[in-house]
Design a protein around this nucleic acid. Structure first.
Lengths: 362, 362
DNA sequence: CTGAAAGCGCTTACAG
DNA sequence: CTGAAAGCGCTTACAG
């Protein structure tokens, strides 16, 4: 009943604690026979070394911290699945810090560092100032940013290629013949949304189209705002009305489609709508949403791999002074993919019986 | 740069480690003046006690384990928000175990217990055998089940009132005049789905209606299956076709609505659809989904509170032998709520020009 | 290849 | 109210 310690295992197998410890740490110095014996004893008694004692003696934990936003996002869950897949294979456990409003970030970060609770930090979709993190990183704590707003900070990061994703989305629309394409933005303080918007603009321009400011609407991921801004879009005179809209997220696209329906417009016959994310329901709604898929699970995996690499071999380089971080910061930008479903169609040839031309070449 | 230890703080404040430790642990025995002094020194040097050393010395960590399924569910994220809100207030951190297929459950559980890594376990939507957990619990590890399949096991738990939620959903439909109500089930190995189905059946019966086996369709949360089973439903002759369907989840409801549209049926004019969960997109799709909301955030909060209560005062009862678990297992069943939106309407008075009667009173 | 000893950074009786 | 000492369960040189 009482928990076994290394001393018990030592006694049970007729050896010293030192030797038992060596087999625990896979030392090659121990005789294969004795190693097998010790292992057998440990297994028989279901011995598991004390987490705390190991951490204290080694000076580091097998824990990586993961800070996530306090939002019920699809994204966080998916990223976590990827992270879990790689950490569990490496014997690391992850300790979860959920950002809530009450939580004081500065002291949280501080605590993680100084209590040496975690040997690395994965920061997911963080909206807080990043300075404390770069400082942490400079002091030697491995940190990698995942899908985080400001990717320009001096920290390793993995993000989706939001700019290219936007290009791809626009390309799809352009190839269907659309020229009056609206953009309903997400939260523009997020780097990812800025990138998507840049993609929207650049894509239009390189197609020789002049972006119409009238066709850009702030949405901020707020359903009500998206709905009313979309109504403005659809209330435009027939020749100014967009024939397609690029929404900065799937849920944004849902709201746009609702507004379209309320305006008596059919999707995709009268107006095409493309989203961004590819959440679970995107394939189930009607019409099934054409969207840009973000590789969240893979992003989680790669981020975890980068972090583990930064943490290093754990055993060897323990005291190798402050390991110099690689000169070039790893910045992984992962490709998105276009998922074609049914919410985008060819541009209506004649929007009204009058069949006005809608092109506005620059 | 080098991390400060309690010994440094002791030196810096001209006291012994013992005294410093006492202030760290809020002992009333230390002089208020010296306590203030020590506190000031610690703050000035941003001292944070070593996590591992504290854990070793105290014999317990301020960590609670949370095991979640490897699925990108809305639910998990929401429950976590609730859990985080209470744990952060109590100074506990949470260590996240994500269930993946590779992971060997038995040994995971074992490791948590024996390494005394966590002082309690929150088990969310677990699909694995629960026996190892009850054994763990009997050996003294606080455990609480959250939204877990089998709530009959001898473990504290918090779940949503799925049975009552189903009753409420059915009531809404019944009051709108529906009598031929179909049920598209979720994964029937889950206790929650069984409860929802029981609610469906009981509700029908107590309304004096004979459940028609023809109107129950397995869906198993599989979009394809849901779609094709729904088509069977909508292909029924007009007088046997359901006028409403109770779906075991929101995403299931989406798929049902798509099938309805494909069958040329309008929602809610021709057929009403009610979901279960209230995910983020439910309000954004068209028509906005009427559904039963599960209080995931609150469930997380209450579960965390229960666990913390079981873990106890942490400091005092450390060695009070095996604390007898309370004779009655706490089993919290939380109420759901009906969110009325637009996917359910009154039963069509005349479904076809012929105006056949559709009642099938038992 | 194995063992005795010191140490990791705290906490906790026990003296004073 | 404060300090010296032992102990928590490991790991890691250092001998042998």
């Amino acid at each position: 009943m009482a928990k076994l310690t290394i001393r018990d295992i030592a006694a049970l197998s007729g050896l010293s604690k030192s030797t038992v410890s060596l087999v625990l740490n896979n030392s090659p110095k121990v005789d294969p026979a004795t190693r097998r014996h010790v292992l057998a004893v440990m297994r028989r008694h279901r011995y598991v070394p004390s987490f705390a004692a190991t951490a204290l003696a080694k000076g580091s934990t097998r824990l990586i911290g993961m800070v996530v936003p306090g939002l019920s996002w699809h994204m966080v869950a998916s990223i976590n699945i990827g992270v879990a897949a790689v950490t569990e294979r490496s014997g690391f456990d992850i300790i979860l810090y959920t950002a809530t409003n009450d939580r004081d970030y500065g002291s949280l970060i501080d605590r993680i560092l100084t209590s040496s609770m975690a040997s690395g930090l994965l920061v997911v979709s963080h909206e807080q100032p990043l300075e404390p993190l770069v400082q942490l990183h400079e002091e030697g704590l491995p940190v990698v940013l995942v899908n985080t707003i400001d990717a320009d900070v001096a920290l390793p990061s993995v993000t989706a290629d939001n700019y290219d994703g936007a290009l791809t989305a626009m390309d799809h629309l352009l190839q269907l013949g659309h020229e009056r394409i609206a953009c309903v933005q997400g939260r523009m303080t997020y780097r990812c949304c800025q990138d998507r918007y840049r993609g929207y603009l650049d894509s239009l321009r390189s197609a020789g189209l002049q972006p119409d400011p009238e066709l850009t609407k702030p949405g901020d991921f707020l359903p009500e705002q998206i709905r009313s801004r979309s109504h403005e879009l659809f209330a435009l005179p027939a020749d100014q009305r967009p024939t397609a809209v690029f929404a900065h997220s799937d849920v944004t696209a849902y709201a746009v489609m609702t507004a379209a329906a309320e305006a008596g417009l059919r999707v995709p016959e009268d107006v095409s709508v493309i989203g961004f994310d590819d959440i679970e329901s995107a394939a189930q709604i009607r019409p099934p949403l054409t969207t840009i898929q973000q590789p969240f699970i893979d992003m989680g995996k790669r981020a975890a791999e980068m972090l583990l690499a930064e943490i290093g071999p754990t055993d060897d380089s323990s005291e190798a002074d402050v390991v110099e971080p690689p000169a070039e910061l790893p910045r992984l930008v992962m490709p998105t993919s276009l998922i074609v479903r049914a919410s985008c169609g060819p541009v209506p040839v004649t929007r009204s019986p009058r069949g006005r031309s809608q092109t506005t070449k620059a």
